[in-house]
Nucleic acid binder design. Structure first.
Lengths: 118, 118
DNA sequence: TCCTTAGTTCAAAAGTTATTGAACAATTGG
DNA sequence: CCAATTGTTCAATAACTTTTGAACTAAGGA
């Protein structure tokens, strides 16, 4: 860890909801949930927004306590803070992600390179 | 019904989350959930904001599909659209309300007149 | 009819969030 | 060391959201 993160009990419900109420960030969270356990770097989300703008949105997610960003070399490994969110707001993340999965209007991550992890 | 409401399938997840991501509106929703079945009029929420500002926030909730406002005489009866929200985003409203109930920082409704329904 | 009550609308001001590009830092591979 | 890769920061701007007060409408009661 390197960048400032709130502790679990500092996570605020209205802030989390407001942060998730943005299609770009909701798409990021949905993607992180789908690939849970696999830490992502920012470049994974470059088809959602520009590099600068991503930095902004990822900072919002981190500051709200939704994600954790670890500096590893020149990359950031981004993970969902699922345990902390589940503890703080039981059921919330699951229902948001389930709803987001059914949302055809949300921008998709990785529609260009569909798993070329060969 | 009199004012424009979205149909159930027009309710959008990011819009609902953004609308709930405001402490005033979240307090309104929490109160409506607690008093479910009892339709409220706007004046119930006057300790959260001014009359004009309440009109704005209640319109946001209605336009997002979170509440229904019916004109009855000179009043508006405001109800939670629980069935529509549960159908569209299962579990979401329950987890938001449960989390909001545990949030000490949210402004409270009716702290001045605690049930003077005599 | 007149007054009150309940709430809306409008336009302005204030505040906040999102987006951009250019410049910067830090790490890593050659 | 040099260059490329990854991502951040900064300042400016654009775009929204919230808040306000004054003016308004519509219904209901005296």
């Amino acid at each position: 860890m390197s960048l400032p993160h709130p502790t679990a009990d500092q996570i605020s419900l209205p802030i989390v909801l407001a942060v998730l109420g943005d299609p770009t960030r909701l798409s990021i969270v949905r993607y992180l949930a789908r690939k849970e356990g696999v830490p992502m770097n920012c470049s994974k989300f470059l088809d959602l927004a520009s590099k600068t703008n991503l930095s902004y949105h990822l900072a919002k997610l981190r500051e709200a306590g939704v994600t954790r960003s670890e500096a590893v070399g020149t990359s950031r490994l981004i993970t969902l803070r699922r345990a902390d969110l589940d503890k703080r707001f039981p059921g919330l993340l699951d229902s948001v992600i389930a709803a987001a999965d059914g949302d055809k209007d949300l921008p998709a991550v990785g529609t260009a390179d569909i798993e070329l992890s060969a």
